[in-house]
């Protein structure tokens, strides 16, 4: 890919942007066919630059870039639109999605289905959808695309269907293993079968099940993060503690 000189009209999102030299931005771009890659947007921080308002996270864009090497140069950015920018809590959920991609998705590793799923998740958050189903579905899709599919319907020991009232221990590298009920609580990886089935159906009507599903996904993601903390999670928690 790095041998190609110019790429045109790529569906893309900005995941994050950092100031770069006096007037430019270094954009962490997430593109459909080329995955995540860094692009320099020259002059994007100049007053009156057309890029200034366009290079925001959470709005569908198309990018054209050129150059070899690790950091390519953004030559064109077109706003695509389709939904308002997320606000309030939806915005914080958006930061969380972006942080997951920045931490877990290797650079220049395209996953077109994951890109489409991300675009859909951002649109649903912006439209004011309940955040739990959007976040859980994206977490599952992300892990699956990275090669760590979350098994939810069959236990990993015998292949038997998950029983709603059965107790399971989720082994990150294997899947759910049936265990004797009544084992110690407080472990997010120890849960009832109905939590797994709720995740499989994206059904979070029951608050206790929704919380257990969230804790399981958090534990599975933490397992892949290798002890890095997610800043967006910390800010989100501080907001909820108000």
């Amino acid at each position: 890919m790095s041998s190609r000189q110019r790429v045109d009209h790529q569906p893309a999102f900005v995941l994050h942007a950092y100031p770069y030299s006096e007037t430019s931005l270094l954009v962490e771009a997430y593109t459909r066919a080329h995955g995540r890659l860094p692009l320099v947007a020259k002059g994007a921080r100049r007053q009156g630059s057309a890029l200034r308002g366009a290079l925001l996270a959470f709005q569908p864009l198309t990018f054209a870039w050129s150059g070899r090497g690790e950091v390519r140069t953004l030559v064109r950015c077109d706003w695509q639109g389709g939904h308002p920018l997320p606000r309030g809590q939806a915005l914080l959920c958006g930061f969380y999605l972006n942080e997951l991609l920045l931490r877990l998705l290797p650079r220049e590793d395209p996953h077109e289905l994951l890109f489409d799923h991300y675009a859909q998740a951002v649109a649903r958050l912006a439209a004011g959808a309940a955040s739990a189903p959007v976040l859980r579905a994206f977490e599952r899709r992300l892990l699956q695309e990275l090669g760590y599919a979350v098994a939810l319907e069959r236990d990993a020991a015998s292949g038997a269907a998950i029983e709603p009232d059965g107790t399971y221990r989720y082994e990150p590298e294997r899947g759910p293993i049936p265990v004797l009920p009544g084992a110690a609580g407080g472990d997010p990886l120890l849960l009832k079968g109905r939590v797994l089935l709720a995740l499989a159906r994206d059904d979070y009507a029951d608050a206790a099940t929704a919380a257990a599903a969230r804790d399981l996904m958090r534990a599975l993601i933490d397992h892949r993060l290798d002890r890095q903390t997610l800043h967006s999670r910390t800010v989100f928690r501080a907001l909820q503690d108000l």
């Binding site: 994050h16 914080l92 930061f95 969380y96 972006n98 942080e99 920045l102 800043h231 967006s232 910390t234 800010v235 989100f236 501080a238 907001l239």
Partner: peptide
């Protein structure tokens, strides 16, 4: 606040 840069409340 900039959650992705670790700037919290």
């Amino acid at each position: 606040l900039s959650p992705l840069d670790g700037v919290g409340p």
